[in-house]
């Protein structure tokens, strides 16, 4: 992203974060932090090509997001996995199995029966096999968030964007997420063993300190890249201190 201004999703003319200059290299893990409503979600959706932006240029895998249209944009999105916050925007009336199978069936032109084996083993990998036949709208939030992760990963994306991965989770789920994200970063055998590029947006960065390699903050409409973990932890940036101190 160069000199990008992301906007509010419901008001496309309202700037949310301006002056974003950000380059994510393959295999990196970025943690983007900021208070709630500071534009982290809008930033992820802009990077995924879901939301228009006001100024600057966004290029993902070398493709200009704003200029991409139709099939080109859809092809680009297939290389990106996006996990939404909360219930993960699952298709509530469909089962967990159908939710996870949908991208595979649609892009691979498979029926649910044909995708059964692959999806079942994928659900097992994610610890979701017992929920397979439950309606996605009725499962608890921590599980729904994990189903959303499974749905985003089933197409084996190269870049994974996760919105608030550890919010409102109990210790067991937090442990599972941290272990799984680290394995993705190191190169999970189920995803070809190649390190996956991760961008994690969070309003509580501390649980992700052990995973993140680079850190950035959105605060009061401004964007700041903070560098590695040491720089992040020892930064005397008043805005970052304000953000971290509010959590204490």
């Amino acid at each position: 992203m160069s000199d990008v201004t992301v906007v509010h999703s419901r008001s496309p003319r309202l700037p949310l974060v301006a002056g974003i200059n950000w380059e994510v290299l393959a295999g990196e893990c970025w943690v983007v932090t900021g208070l709630q409503g500071s534009g982290k979600t809008a930033l992820l959706e802009t990077a995924a090509g879901l939301q228009p932006y006001l100024e600057g240029q966004v290029r993902v895998f070398g493709t200009h997001v704003q200029g991409a249209e139709g099939d080109e944009l859809l092809r680009m999105r297939r290389r990106i996995g996006l996990v939404f916050d909360g219930h993960g925007r699952l298709f509530g009336s469909e089962t967990v199995f159908e939710n996870v199978a949908l991208p595979l069936c649609y892009h691979g032109n498979k029926s649910l029966e044909e995708a059964f084996e692959e999806v079942t083993s994928f659900l097992k990998l994610m610890g979701l096999e017992e929920l397979a036949n439950q309606a996605a709208g009725r499962i608890a939030r921590p599980w729904a968030h994990r189903v959303a992760l499974a749905r985003a990963l089933i197409l084996r994306p190269e870049l994974l964007l996760v919105d608030n991965p550890l919010s409102a989770l109990d210790a067991t789920h937090v442990r599972w997420w941290r272990t799984f994200l680290v394995r993705l970063l190191e190169g999970h055998p189920a995803f070809g063993g190649k390190p996956m590029t991760l961008v994690l947006a969070t309003d509580e960065p501390r649980p992700l300190l052990g995973i993140g390699q680079k850190f950035a903050v959105t605060h009061e409409g401004k964007w700041r890249c903070l560098g590695g973990r040491a720089e992040f932890e020892h930064s005397d940036d008043p805005e970052l201190r304000e953000l971290l101190d509010e959590r204490d």
């Binding site: 995924a48 859809l74 297939r78 939404f84 298709f91 892009h107 197409l155």
Partner: peptide, 11 residues
């Protein structure tokens, strides 16, 4: 937001 979820999946 299910429509955005579809778009995010390239559908």
């Amino acid at each position: 937001g299910e429509v955005e979820a579809l778009e995010a999946l390239g559908i």
